[in-house]
């Protein structure tokens, strides 16, 4: 039995706006094991991002417990959470969130700048390796404005990989991309997953979910489905079968 990377129990998140309370998450429990590729699905407003932000230690739950890699997060302070984000989590955003006017290489180096255990040489070497892994070995000095959307997302993926995280969390990482580019990104994720990286992927597109081995479906802040996928599609194969356009 492989180890549990994420374990949440009865997780709730409420937002108070004025005298109105929005129950974005209404008591969610699940476990994600090492090596899984999980997609979280659900319509817009169902609480996917709220859940992922809590999993990524960017936000805190109103109640419930959360363990990451065996570590209880309940009593940790802000600085300890920052260290967890830095060392255990790779987060990928829908809108890439790269530093403007900054080279791909420097963007990828960013998480390691906040890790004093990594020397300058090692930081550079790891960033180059991560960029090569996502197929951008020849674009390292390009700034975001000189890269396509898909390439920018690859830089963001390289950034999430560079600290050797125990898991990668992606929030609609293909949401801004066309089908072909989405499949390219998904095939990259599948490759990374095969190398043993645990991935949690938020999406509302069913075809994207078919590339993962498990799908959790949210509705109005509750889990309505949690299925293992027995017919995992290969994104690479799907990509090949797409009608070829003139690039």
């Amino acid at each position: 039995m492989s180890k549990e990377i994420i374990k949440i129990e009865d997780l709730k998140r409420e937002f108070t706006m004025g005298n109105e309370t929005v129950h974005a998450l209404k008591g969610i429990s699940f476990t994600i094991k090492e090596g899984e590729f999980v997609t979280i699905m659900g319509s817009s407003g169902s609480g996917k991002s709220t859940l992922l932000n809590i999993l990524g230690c960017l936000d805190r739950p109103t109640s419930g417990t959360y363990e990451i890699d065996g570590l209880k997060l309940k009593d940790l302070d802000k600085n300890a959470l920052a260290t967890i984000r830095n060392e255990k989590i790779g987060f990928i955003f829908q809108s890439y969130n790269l530093l403007a006017r900054t080279s791909a290489l420097e963007n990828v180096e960013l998480p390691l700048l906040y890790n004093s255990k990594v020397s300058t040489e090692e930081r550079r070497a790891r960033a180059i390796k991560a960029l090569e892994k996502v197929g951008l070995g020849d674009r390292m000095q390009h700034t975001p404005s000189q890269l396509s959307g898909g390439q920018q997302q690859r830089v963001a993926i390289a950034r999430s990989l560079v600290n050797n995280p125990v898991m990668i969390l992606a929030d609609e990482a293909t949401g801004n991309l066309d089908t072909r580019t989405s499949y390219e990104i998904m095939s990259l994720f599948q490759e990374l997953n095969q190398q043993g990286i645990t991935i949690t992927f938020v999406t509302h597109e069913p075809d994207i979910a078919s590339f993962s081995n498990r799908t959790i479906v949210l509705k109005d802040g509750s889990i309505i489905k949690d299925n293992l996928n027995h017919k995992i599609q290969s994104a690479a194969t799907e990509l090949a079968s797409l009608p070829t356009e003139d690039n």
Binding site: A82, N86, E87, F91, N97, L99, L110, Y114, R159, N163
Partner: peptide, 16 residues
């Protein structure tokens, strides 16, 4: 502020 958010998201502490 967005840049600050990103820096924190990748592990920057408030003090950093």
């Amino acid at each position: 502020t967005k840049e600050i958010g990103l820096r924190m998201a990748v592990g920057g502490k408030g003090s950093d």
